[in-house]
């Protein structure tokens, strides 16, 4: 299977602190790759480097065969890299529908030129995540779980080829988590490759084709779910957190 994303030797330093150190990872086309690690392991920093929010200090990043290092975030969005935020960032003064339509209007390949078609696309994505009845509300009136759904719908409306999901399940209840897991599987079935950051272990085990683990900014292990979760280094990383 060919790789849609290849990161090699990615390193990010914030002044003295090395947040991500020499991380190499490949994401295959059409797979769901789980990214786990204790708090502060550098997961979000890694995702930020993939979509262009942060520039790495070293290393290279190849998306669909071309290096995207140095490309501004909006250009990477045009190439088909979409993401959601752990801390939700809706456009507060717009309706839910307008929020999602921004993804459709400006996303992959520069987005949809027609407002009408973009609105249809946004409407479909909102219905898909279960926000179909809320489209007229203002985004800042939504509760936490619905904001998470909006993040997902807005990213899907971009028609991405690679979707980076940064803790879309945090704060959801069991039923809602089941729903989102099913949604993500359906997204993958449309041919979209997905990188999932998640603390909810059940989500990682039922979604991921492969998992890799970051600890103190370094990749400690990579493989199938079963292998990784039994790995003594992973157990230690997580137990170390618990002991605190």
């Amino acid at each position: 299977m060919e790789n849609i994303l290849e990161a090699s030797g990615l390193t990010k330093r914030f002044h003295g602190l090395v947040a991500v150190h020499d991380v190499s990872v490949q994401l295959r086309r059409g797979e769901i790759l789980g990214l786990i690690g204790p708090n502060g392991a550098g997961k979000t920093t890694l995702v930020d480097m993939v979509n262009g929010t942060l520039e790495p200090n070293a290393g290279d990043l190849v998306f669909e065969g071309r290096s995207v290092r140095g490309l501004p975030a909006y250009r990477r969005a045009h190439l088909g890299i979409g993401r959601t935020f752990q801390i939700m960032k809706p456009f507060p003064g717009m309706s839910v529908l307008e929020n999602a339509s921004i993804g459709a209007l400006f996303g992959t390949n520069g987005g949809e030129r027609s407002i009408g078609r973009a609105r249809e696309q946004a409407r479909e994505c909102l219905a898909f995540v279960g926000l179909g009845r809320r489209i007229a509300q203002r985004a800042d009136a939504l509760g936490g779980p619905d904001r998470k759904r909006l993040e997902l719908a807005r990213a899907l409306a971009m028609r991405p080829r690679l979707l980076l999901l940064d803790e879309v399940m945090a704060g959801l209840n069991h039923v809602e988590i089941e729903e989102v897991i099913e949604d993500i599987k359906k997204v993958r079935d449309q041919g979209i490759s997905i990188l999932v950051i998640e603390h909810v272990m059940k989500a990682i085990t039922s979604l991921s084709d492969r998992v890799f683990v970051l600890h103190h900014g370094e990749k400690i292990v990579e493989g199938s779910c079963g292998e990784v979760l039994r790995d003594p280094r992973v157990v230690e990383a997580y137990l170390g957190r618990r002991r605190r």
Binding site: F85, M94, G111
Partner: peptide, 17 residues
């Protein structure tokens, strides 16, 4: 809409293209 998106949340607007 792009103008309004950029004024309401620049970080998000850039990431949506």
């Amino acid at each position: 809409r792009g103008i309004r998106a950029a004024s309401q949340n620049l970080v998000a607007a850039r990431l949506y293209g």
